[in-house]
Design a protein around this nucleic acid. Structure first.
Lengths: 111, 111
DNA sequence: CAGGATCCCCGACGATACTG
DNA sequence: CAGTATCGTCGGGGATCCTG
């Protein structure tokens, strides 16, 4: 499990921050969304962090950003092919968490 | 995507820290390991963080800790049934990352 | 050898204010 | 409406030292 130059660790590290998974999930669940819609779907995220997170995800190729030349400005985001394939995997874990979440919380609280 | 009382977000948040996934993965890949073995498998982890991480994982029921009454002390760790089922899901993402990691890094570096 | 306790740094993140 | 810039805080996590 070497760390340097290990793409796997690198990829996982970028995804497993506080907001990336939720952002990908929102786009996966609702399809194309604009900035202001995203900020409402992702409960608790700040303006700033949504911007930062979207930039990172775009930089890694998970999402596509489209700007419309309108006033007021309109920008929307959607998953790329890569993003959708990642979304598949995330769905697996999310489904797992849905199924086992209660049990885990219960276990944690007793003792 | 409400946050409070959402077991899914809670579970994901606990797993997606810097070392939990790697620890689970190490135990999944190598089976039962003692503390000193784990610290060598997980490249770059500090003594302290391995302790903390293992405590959390144990607290959530992912791993089982066994202490032997020997001198010098001997403690080993292994995945529980819950841990192994999570490991299944993680394997999916890790496999995905292995397959797409190069492409992502390349995309990130070009522009 | 396993692991607790302490100290400390730095980066992630939120709040806020400003632009096109 | 979407995005940038600045600032301050707070806690994750590394280094180190001490115990059984």
């Amino acid at each position: 499990m070497a760390n340097e130059i290990c793409p796997v660790r690198d990829v996982i590290a970028r995804i497993s921050d506080k907001w990336s998974i939720l952002s990908i999930y929102a786009l996966g669940a609702y399809g194309k969304l604009r900035f202001s819609e995203l900020i409402h779907k992702i409960d608790g995220i700040s303006h700033r962090m949504l911007t930062v997170t979207l930039r990172n995800l775009e930089g890694d190729g998970y999402i596509k950003r489209t700007v419309y030349a309108e006033v007021p400005p309109r920008v929307d985001y959607e998953l790329t092919e890569l993003g959708r394939s990642l979304m598949q995997e995330l769905s697996g874990i999310i489904g797992w968490a849905e199924k086992n979440g209660k049990e885990i919380l219960a276990f944690r609280n007793k003792k």
